[in-house]
Design a protein around this nucleic acid. Structure first.
Lengths: 329, 329
DNA sequence: TTGAAAGCGCTACCAA
DNA sequence: TTGGTAGCGCTTTCAA
């Protein structure tokens, strides 16, 4: 019923081999022949059977994308970037959301690995050992994390933090709080490290106020601790947490940024939807997704040259209403 | 290199055919043999090659999921539901985000159709003709939309609206505004229709204030029109729009719900993150996703019995801070 | 209940 | 530059 390569061959008056070549190695086929084939393909509406092709080439034409929680508005952006770039190279993408269940991830990656040519892995929690083992089986590009020499797309947390701290210092803050994300999160560790060194260098005080789940509720939970710490500005692990802080601050009747400045990370869409809008470090989410696929494509073509492939993208501080000078009391 | 069915056969001391049967038609194999095969499979870590299987069975083990915009927090929930249910039946899911570009969707669906056994299609904008044509080629289940007899999972908008209106009327509102979503959106049309009949039946006034893009910016844009319309309560097409209204109302110094009550649809996570929290009609997003896959599985197994498969899920009004009695001026 | 053999649609090799 | 042929890994007849 579906039209096969034989049908095309017959219609074009050539052999199946020639059709195959005309499609996948056009250079090896005479222009005239190629044209005849092209026409037959169009006429019959032929689409190569991917399973058959995959069976012999060993490639699936699919890539996998694993994210910890699609509900976190950071990830849809990444997904879009991945999809877009994948489609440009005629790859389809399998998406898997692990619901932040790190143990599940390793299994998932393994299962997925069988069905794809490579995986873009965004898994802040999986253990390094697991990541390594999995990377041994399937080409992998990590997002927002570095593990050994596994190819990775990261966002320059150091620079981001420098921008953020410089901004707050310029406003006149001397005591900053940090509400941390999961201890195992690579991004969190990087941010914390950069925060320590930058504040030390600038001579401002840094209080590591709390460690919370990277969600709205985490911010709500940390808000009172932040207040008790007596800081005039607080940096949150991500926007979700920052929004939680803002929410609880509002409930307690604080003026933002008069009483306290709040700064987040990610620039999720909702950062702009609150009042005042959230100052945040914008992560190039789609670009990161695109870069991930890009790296993966290289990796799949020349697996040897792998190991060092890296992209470090630049974040950008977006100053909005939630940060301002501390009230000069 | 990868372990094949032959390896398993050799290890178990049976023929490949038997291994195949033991795996896909266990009933046809003697218990003892089956056990030997099972053991060999486990020992060698054998996973059937999907491409090879697909080549012969004509099935891919994949399903496609198409959503208009992953960035709208409504959809990640749906995606999660779809994935979960798909995984339970050992299907993988291809995700495609069409970025609200309706024309692109039809192509996308067609392309995807070749690589999957069925598609869950969430496409409020695609024309009916396109949907029909596409449904002729690939098993399809529609989400939140009805087109002819194509299987569909919907959410009972009529009941949802009745709950919402009853709530507002009970609070003492007599003049309601509606900020509509895209005219072509099935959900929007359903809601509008239910709104008209329910308000008529209840004797309250309904003003169709504006038609906007189903996004935050749409709500912001409509807010002043709502105010000018002089209603005491406004129902928004979805939470994103409602949040936009809330934002602009706040900017104009209105008290919520004192000056005006706001009610949304969807119960996206951010509905709870604003102050006051948004009263909204919760859509069972994950359940809808699950039901979509469920229907699809049936459809793929007995294509004949299709055509009438329907699931209408129940929405639930969540009363929160953004609705209250009108100020008795 | 099991095995042998054919063949799914395609690509890759070897000859011509 | 092209065609013939073999075979990817699996399922599915058909016979035994």
């Amino acid at each position: 019923m579906p039209v096969t390569i034989k049908d095309v061959a017959r219609a074009a008056g050539v052999s199946p081999s020639t059709v195959s070549r005309a499609l996948s190695t056009p250079g090896l086929v005479q222009a005239a022949t190629r044209e005849r084939v092209r026409r037959a393909v169009a006429e019959l509406g032929y689409h190569p059977n991917r399973a058959a092709r995959g069976l012999i080439t060993g490639r699936t034409g699919n890539i996998g994308l694993i994210v910890p929680d699609l509900t976190n508005p950071f990830f849809p952006g990444v997904v879009k970037g991945v999809q877009e770039r994948a489609r440009e190279s005629d790859y389809s993408v399998f998406l898997a959301d692990t619901d932040e269940r790190a143990p599940l991830e390793a299994d998932l990656v393994r299962a997925l690995g069988k069905q794809v040519d490579g995986i873009v892995l965004c898994s802040p929690r999986m253990s390094e050992a697991e990541v390594r083992s999995v990377a041994g089986e399937t080409p992998i590009v990590m997002l927002n994390r570095r593990v050994g020499r596994i190819p990775a797309v990261t966002i320059d947390n150091g620079e981001a933090i420098r921008q953020a701290v410089a901004h707050l210092v310029a406003l006149g803050h001397h005591r900053l709080g940090y509400v941390a994300g999961p201890r195992v999160s690579w991004s969190n560790r990087e941010r914390l490290r950069a925060l320590r060194s930058t504040t030390a260098a600038t001579g401002v005080e840094l209080l590591e106020v709390a460690t919370v789940v990277p969600q709205f509720s985490g911010g709500v939970a940390a808000a009172d601790l932040v207040l008790a710490a007596g800081v005039t500005a607080v940096v949150a692990y991500n926007d979700l947490v920052a929004l939680g802080l803002l929410n609880r601050f509002a409930a307690r009747g604080l003026a933002i940024p008069g009483d306290i400045s709040v700064l987040g990370f990610d620039d999720i869409v909702f950062a702009e939807m609150v009042n005042p809008a959230l100052t945040t470090v914008a992560q190039p989410k789609e670009a990161a997704g695109r870069a991930g696929v890009e790296l993966l494509l290289h990796l799949m073509e020349e697996p040897d040259r792998a190991g060092t492939a890296r992209r470090d993208l630049t974040a950008q501080l977006l100053v909005r209403g939630s940060t301002g000078p501390p009230r000069t009391a």
